[in-house]
């Protein structure tokens, strides 16, 4: 068990002088944040149906993980899944259009926020059922292994999902069949409205991977470099036929489970404390300390992204509604 469970420590030389990586990470994290903030704005205006589950605060996980993936690698994601979709290369316009239920959306407006999918980018689908995408990713890995394509599958899920049977069954199956799959648990400390420590006695959820003899790594999920490096090991293992890895990225959801959540289960002080440790703020400091990007460049990229998000959101708001004939298409 000891060797199977590792606590990732960032090497001093990580990304040293690598401005290209720093810029990519900075851009993606900000794109996710700007997108999610705009979604809250649109939601408040009553332009979206259902519930909105924001990814704000967890940007380093999606970003660091997906920097290791190829376009044709498969991912499955949860209902808190726009961050990972953006990190995998999704077009913000098509994402906004889907959020607003429009014809130009990835799913023609028929999936919505909880079911983002994009075949071309290997995004097999976000899932409204906690943990349900995990065995599906295992199946995608089975295809990759069977067809010897060199692709891998990776699945994002939250801490709460590790109490679902689907999680355990999928891990065991992937371990036994030695499949090229990476399990990424984004532990944001709350399973919906319940602190994970109230429903799970394991301090480190990665222990559950080790229990199935899957090498498992605990990583600081608010440090994009650490996430990137830890996941790289896992992705390399999968791609070289050595089987699955589980990553537990410890992070924090800075907003409620869904928009409107009164967050009675945690204190304002706790949230404020995590705001100091949030990934975008932290990475800005890293860029400055390590002289990866200067203040001007960081601001320039950030401003440009916020402007771009404004523009595409407006365009999406003007997009057509799907035709009524869409009710009856794509059933079988």
């Amino acid at each position: 068990m000891g060797q199977l469970l590792q606590f990732f420590e960032l090497g001093e030389q990580t990304w040293h002088g690598d401005q290209r990586k720093a810029e990519e990470a900075w851009r993606t994290m900000n794109l996710i944040r700007a997108f999610e903030e705009k979604c809250i704005e649109l939601y408040k205006q009553g332009l979206m149906g259902g519930s909105l589950h924001s990814y704000i605060g967890q940007e380093a996980v999606a970003t660091g993980v997906c920097m290791n993936l190829n376009t044709d690698d498969y991912i499955t994601i949860s209902y808190r899944g726009r961050g990972q979709a953006i990190a995998k290369g999704a077009d913000p316009y098509k994402l906004f259009a889907e959020m607003l239920g429009r014809k130009d959306g990835y799913c023609k407006g028929k999936g919505g926020p909880m079911h983002i999918a994009c075949r071309e980018l290997g995004i097999l689908g976000a899932n409204g059922i906690v943990g349900a995408g995990i065995p599906i990713a295992v199946g995608a890995a089975l295809t990759a292994k069977n067809k010897k394509t060199g692709q891998i599958a990776l699945t994002f899920f939250g801490d709460g999902a590790t109490n679902q049977g689907a999680f355990h069954e999928a891990l065991n199956l992937a371990a036994v069949l030695k499949l090229p799959v990476v399990f990424v648990c984004e532990n944001n400390l709350y399973a919906e409205m319940t602190p994970i420590k109230h429903s799970t006695l394991n301090e480190d959820l990665a222990e559950r991977g080790a229990a199935y003899r899957i090498p498992s790594i605990v990583v600081d999920g608010n440090d994009v470099r650490a996430v990137h490096e830890a996941t790289k090991t896992a992705v390399d293992r999968a791609r070289s036929g050595e089987g699955p890895t589980l990553i537990e990225a410890k992070t924090y959801r800075l907003v409620g489970h869904m928009f409107g959540d009164p967050e009675t289960y945690r204190t304002k002080e706790e949230v404020a404390e995590w705001r100091q440790k949030e990934p975008i703020k932290r990475f800005r400091q890293v860029c400055l300390d390590e002289k990866l990007l200067d203040e001007d460049r960081l601001d320039e990229i950030q401003n440009q992204i916020y402007k771009e998000i404004d523009t595409v959101a407006k365009r999406a708001m003007e997009a057509d509604q799907p035709g009524m004939e869409e009710i009856f298409t794509d059933v079988y």
Binding site: L124, P135, G139, E169, A170, N172
Partner: peptide, 27 residues
């Protein structure tokens, strides 16, 4: 590789069948 004995875990292997079907197999 083509006739796969699975653990007793209907959710797990049905889900895997779905994922495999979505990516080019016919399970």
């Amino acid at each position: 590789d083509r006739v796969i004995d699975t653990p007793i875990s209907e959710t797990g292997f049905t889900g895997a069948g779905i994922g495999a079907a979505m990516t080019g197999m016919k399970p």
